[in-house]
Write a protein that binds this DNA or RNA. Structure first.
Lengths: 237, 237
DNA sequence: GTAATAGTGTCTCTGAGACAATATGAT
DNA sequence: ATCATATTGTCTCAGAGACACTATTAC
């Protein structure tokens, strides 16, 4: 899109997150760059777009909405917030470039194909899966923000499906924080109970049976849009 | 600067904060717009500059450094962090404009004059002191970020002078949070004690005597650059 | 002495976190 | 029964926060 532009490039990028129950991991949506005239053609990157290229956006948020509706994403998200803005002269071979990075979450596990892919968040943030531009760094920033918010808010629940198990919550929290699953297990269970009291979550009588062990109860999100703030933080590591 | 530019305007703005012991209030540095060819001439605004106008910046951080060295500020700060980026088609009469907002703090109470002024942070954030552009909103965002960080970090100490009293801390926390000074007083005292244990602060034998009442002990910052993270938050209101 | 403000002590209570104990399926 | 995993229960402890009490100045 509009390679003739002289000035600085301004863009928005979004890291869309979900929890994959089968694989027990957090995943981020990546997009394979399709334009042979653009740098990093054929490589994986965060979905993003240049602002005020072909289309005139009214605001950063409007640009994000346009991105979410575009084929690079194509589904709606349950939560979206701005993470950081990175701008410098070296991150884009075309010249000075600024991007404002958002993170978003999905409730229902949308499956994707072709030029889209769900990839392990931890692998990407630790550069075991290389992305275009400085996008590995951006993903690391997203994971950092996520881990920080996990400590004192219920934001993690936004990336779980509408029905989830206690094990899902514990697994999600431990992989994002890079900690042992047993770490703070009691606290997480307490937090879910708090959220049940606050009518944000309900315990259903449905269960999920794995190959081995006791079946797990399913919990249901009642108010997926509400982010709960806890007045004590989970531990750091 | 460079009114001929066609594309979007990109800028950085900074809210520099300090605590005024005499007036017992948090203050933000404002700058009076000097260029008659620019919008909002003569009005007060956050210090800011257009990126890649006359000067080529290497990064957003380099632009902030240039701003801090420029006459619009002209002194160094003890802490600086990015708060938010706002971009839309209506905030600047010249057209689409994006600004990345930083907040910064000063240790020592630098006095300013002429086109610079320290103004009550709460008054500005509540629009009792009107600024150019959407800068009142930006200041409100800064205050919100500040109040949030006050809850679970020691960031507030960055805007106190190197030597401060317990009353300073309590006053600062209460005005930023918009709460009664007695609220959480015990907790704040506890936190200072924790920071003394951690060798970040020392109790001196110097005292400050006001017109009435018992004199106050002075505390000294030992490691002003270290931000302490508490594992429990202060209350919300 | 009194007024005013600073600093300390005591108490309660919530919630993190470790760990043990029990429950419920498959085989 | 045994194994594997889920769920519940028990205990400790740090720290928020309210409030009462004591200390130190000026007048």
């Amino acid at each position: 899109m509009s390679e003739e532009r002289r000035g600085a490039i301004q863009s928005v990028d979004v890291g869309i997150l979900r929890f994959n129950r089968e694989l027990g991991r957090a995943e981020i949506l990546l997009h394979k760059r399709q334009n042979p005239d653009e740098p990093y053609f054929g490589q994986w990157a965060l979905p993003g777009l240049v602002i005020n290229g072909d289309t005139q956006d009214q605001s950063l948020e409007a640009a994000i909405d346009r991105l979410l509706l575009s084929p690079k994403v194509g589904f709606s998200v349950s939560h979206c917030e701005q993470v950081v803005t990175v701008g410098n002269a070296v991150r884009d071979p075309r010249g000075w470039a600024t991007t404002t990075v958002y993170m978003a979450m999905v409730d229902d596990s949308v499956e994707v194909e072709g030029d889209k892919q769900w990839v392990d968040l931890v692998a990407v943030s630790e550069k075991k899966f290389l992305l275009a531009f400085d996008h590995n760094e951006l993903v690391a920033r997203i994971r950092g923000r996520l881990a920080g918010k996990f400590r004192y808010t219920s934001i993690g629940f936004s990336m779980l499906p509408m029905k989830f198990t206690m094990t899902d919550v514990i697994t999600l929290f431990s992989v994002v924080r890079g900690a042992n699953p047993a770490k703070g297990k009691t606290s997480i269970v307490q937090r879910v109970k708090k959220m049940i009291e606050a009518q944000l979550i309900a315990l259903t009588d449905e269960t999920v049976q794995l190959a081995m062990g006791r079946p797990q109860y399913l919990y249901l999100k009642l108010k997926p849009e509400v982010i709960f703030e806890f007045d004590r933080a989970l531990s750091d590591d």
